[in-house]
Design a binder for these strands. Sequence first.
DNA 1: CATGAATGAGCCTTCATTCAT
DNA 2: TATGAATGAAGGCTCATTCAT
Lengths: 207, 207, 207, 207
Amino acid sequence: MRQKKPDKRKVQGAETKKKLYEIAERLFREHSYSDVMIEDITDEAGITKGAFYVHFESKDALIALLIADHTSRADTIYKAFLETLPPDMPAPNVLLALTERITEVLTGSFGCDNMKKVYQMMLAGTVDTEAVKNYNRELYVLFHGVLERGIRKGELKSTMPVEALVRHFVAAFRGISYEWCIRYPDFDLKEQAAQHVRLLIEGIQPR
Amino acid sequence: MRQKKPDKRKVQGAETKKKLYEIAERLFREHSYSDVMIEDITDEAGITKGAFYVHFESKDALIALLIADHTSRADTIYKAFLETLPPDMPAPNVLLALTERITEVLTGSFGCDNMKKVYQMMLAGTVDTEAVKNYNRELYVLFHGVLERGIRKGELKSTMPVEALVRHFVAAFRGISYEWCIRYPDFDLKEQAAQHVRLLIEGIQPR
Amino acid sequence: MRQKKPDKRKVQGAETKKKLYEIAERLFREHSYSDVMIEDITDEAGITKGAFYVHFESKDALIALLIADHTSRADTIYKAFLETLPPDMPAPNVLLALTERITEVLTGSFGCDNMKKVYQMMLAGTVDTEAVKNYNRELYVLFHGVLERGIRKGELKSTMPVEALVRHFVAAFRGISYEWCIRYPDFDLKEQAAQHVRLLIEGIQPR
Amino acid sequence: MRQKKPDKRKVQGAETKKKLYEIAERLFREHSYSDVMIEDITDEAGITKGAFYVHFESKDALIALLIADHTSRADTIYKAFLETLPPDMPAPNVLLALTERITEVLTGSFGCDNMKKVYQMMLAGTVDTEAVKNYNRELYVLFHGVLERGIRKGELKSTMPVEALVRHFVAAFRGISYEWCIRYPDFDLKEQAAQHVRLLIEGIQPR
DNA sequence: CATGAATGAGCCTTCATTCAT
DNA sequence: TATGAATGAAGGCTCATTCAT
């Protein structure tokens, strides 16, 4: 017995952390990062400012965590989406379908606003955005799988290593998304991204 | 003599003010209000912080001016739009058409982001948002014209004064827009606004 | 039975306290008091912050204890030193010898840095420095013995009570030491203290 | 005329900055860096906390500046000292003399305390200590001159490039100084440094 | 005895604003 | 008009301390 001492304090601590996370997520969705004060979050959670720092290293760290979670969630969506496609779908079609799904996620659930914030933060360097930039990110893995299979099956060709190709694809996405951010709303991400991917594919398709 | 010296100083002053205005407009479009510092604006304009206050009373005053200008521009669009409609179009149709146009402006050129900022500011009260709230705003006048004519022609009816009716309409718009802001992007402003206006019309239409 | 259970808890507690004490002593020697955090001490001791307060009332209390211990150790050194002097050594010589020994301890093992901290704390009043200031401190007793014997033997004379004389001597030491602290390293404590004591002695020596 | 508008404000600004610098220098000499608050400095200067940041980027930046200035001053002393030595003095003797001078400066005017702070800061990385670490620091240049001349004249020999040799020498000094800091006052910097340099010289002297 | 979540006073820093020049 | 030193109200963060477990 006494096998699983729940330790009320630890449980409450975890609850507090979760509460802070959720309040922050909502507030950051409704207002800009800089408009949300730590005290706004802690006041709503019914604790003091200091307690915030028991659970999160800093405001930036919390934002970074939020971004990382969103990123990971998006990647999970992309992965699940790829698994629904027929296994024999040609790689170019898969790429276009994935492109559409990604732009849907970005323009849909994620939103240009969050995208802007993330892009600003990546530029500012004040917040850890490794989750977005890291080459081990699932997104890179997914692209790698698609491109690698396409090349193997002769549907695609490339003179450069698949790893490099993958990075070029993601970089292109980043470029298009950036344009979207700075030209929003005068920029059709979905259409522009589709066009761009088509261009990339045609450039690497065997004649 | 010396009657109309072009007064280079004055000209340059106006130019500086215009420059500040335009830089501010762009920066505020690209970043959140609180992320843009006065120095960001003046640095880009090549002048010092102090000079900003020669041209604008405060940061909030500039934001208020920006909002007022945007509002006025939007109202001008609505007015012009109404003038393109056939004079004999029934009031309900005019209202629905105007609704569509407004939501187009809001979702299109103005954007949810600015809308949020404006709504936040109206709530915060730190910035003068009279241009948006004032009952003499052109938007109220336009609605007044449509409703008044509709009632006069028997296409609409109402037990309350047209002035009050107008305010109810604008309030309804405000409510729908607010929902749009806080539920964005999971809220179809255009569709929801159309539905709401239809409800309002049916509720006040003679059988 | 169970008469003298070694009470492992108590033993371990004492060990933990000793460990904390020693770690604190070292850290305070290597860094300034305010740079050392409770967590630095407890982390190194392998316990948590809360446990610190089981053993010490506060950070200041620990510092006070450290100071008191150092003070007491110094006084023990002075006492032992006095006992090594020939019993018939004239009081003026004893005073000069004691002076030299004290300045040796201060400039040697104790150090100007700790001295400064102690003096700051006495001024700040946030830490209990009774051990240093208290007139019952061994240092006062020692001076009292020397002065009293000197007077009794006719080697010294004074119009004021020995108690007052003792306090003047210690105050003089305090003054010289303070000068040392704020002028360090441009102040030769040993030389200045010797000079000062010589002055005090000559002023109270019978012609 | 109007050739040199002194611009009272600019002058006063410079004076304020100088005042802050001097007050800071004194306070940092008398207390530890973390015990000195910006407000202590600005209060004494008769200005507000905010004004501090008009003149210095941050507390750390001020400390870095102080360190850089001290470093540069020390290097100037070393350089001047070298120039007083007879031009025909053998390199080993020059090295020993320079060593003695350096340890005099460190143990004398600079002090172990400041040294500790600098070493702590170099480790902590919160403060810019480039002035101390940079390989272009005058100290490296001086050692380079001595070693290079010694090798050229056959008084020294080395299998490694002079640049590397210089770095080894400075690193050795750093090591010895570090020992001094952590073992202070039970470590005779002067003696230990002399011994160490003698060892280094014997290791590189031609037989 | 020990834990660690929570507190709250206090410090560093930012930035809109003022004002003497 | 323009300058830039100075102000002061916040906001982010730290850390000694408390207390329920």
